[in-house]
Amino acid sequence: MTIEKYLVKKTSLPVLFDKIKASGKVVKAPKKKSHTTDFADVASFSEVTDDYIVTTQSAKSVAFPRVEKLFNYVKSKDGVQITDYALNAIPEVVMWGVRPCDAAGFDPLNAIFTWDINDVIFTTKLKKTTIIGFSCQNADENCFCTSVGGNPGSTQGSDILFTKLSSGDYLAEVISEKGKAIQALAPELFEAAPSEDKEQNLAKVDVKFTKEIIKEKVDKYFESDVWKEQAQRCIGCGTCAFVCPTCACFDIQDENHGKNGHRIRTWDSCCFSQFTLHTSGHNPRPTQDRRWRQRIMHKFSYMPDRINVYGCVGCGRCSRACPVDMNIAEHLTNISKM
């Protein structure tokens, strides 16, 4: 559908929020927690914060949570009984306050989970998720969406995108049928489109490189000392992957509670030293520089090659969260100049 534009008054926002809640949908929105700001269930609009560049964690948990029970089982003397995942119990969720980079992150995730074989758990969850985006008025030194094809006011991935105007009111862009369904909950709040230009109300994020240049360079410099130099301080944790909106790597494990249990899927990361370790002790990626190279190659070479989408939306979360300041934008900028 073509994007429809409206004005939503500042004072209408909480009303819309309440209407969505009243419709029975689960609403998750950025909330200040004791140490971070993250998406969480919120009881009322007053708990929602708009004071964040991006949340610490991405919005991906809505469709790809850190622990997913794939099915339940019961073991008995005569065998095993499996209770399948209850797809029809997945609730309708509205993600409120998603930044454009985060919204764009669902594309690469979806590409992975639908590559030839459909991961119905993920795709059903995503189908039942409505994304209400909010453009960025502020960016920090870690943001680089514009270098990887995004921008602070991009509508990609959102169902409705709000952009705060100089008056404090909002430009609402209704992008999809799911967005229309939200609008239909309170059509009276969506007034005639404002004349004010959207662009001038967006954060400025300088273009540092292009994703195509990065692809060209990493394909050329697979064998290069740059990986060793960059990875020296990397301590091989899972932080960058866990906060990343597009990282999809996971582990599969069984968890028992007596005779009952479930098979679960949990987040994993190519930066962990054990990620590729064989039981025999052989490790195909034995050093951190190779694991760092994998991270960058996967996002900027293998994903575009295989599933036609880059694995980075420039949110800068990994840089902010990294315990040793592995600034990805800085590393990519250096690679782009090789």
């Binding site: 590559w115 074989i117 996971f250 582990d251 994993d268 195909p284 996967h298």
Partner: peptide, 14 residues
Amino acid sequence: NRMKCGFGKCGRCN
């Protein structure tokens, strides 16, 4: 290569 999913999603055998 070490594997988990077997169908190109978990990233492990990449």
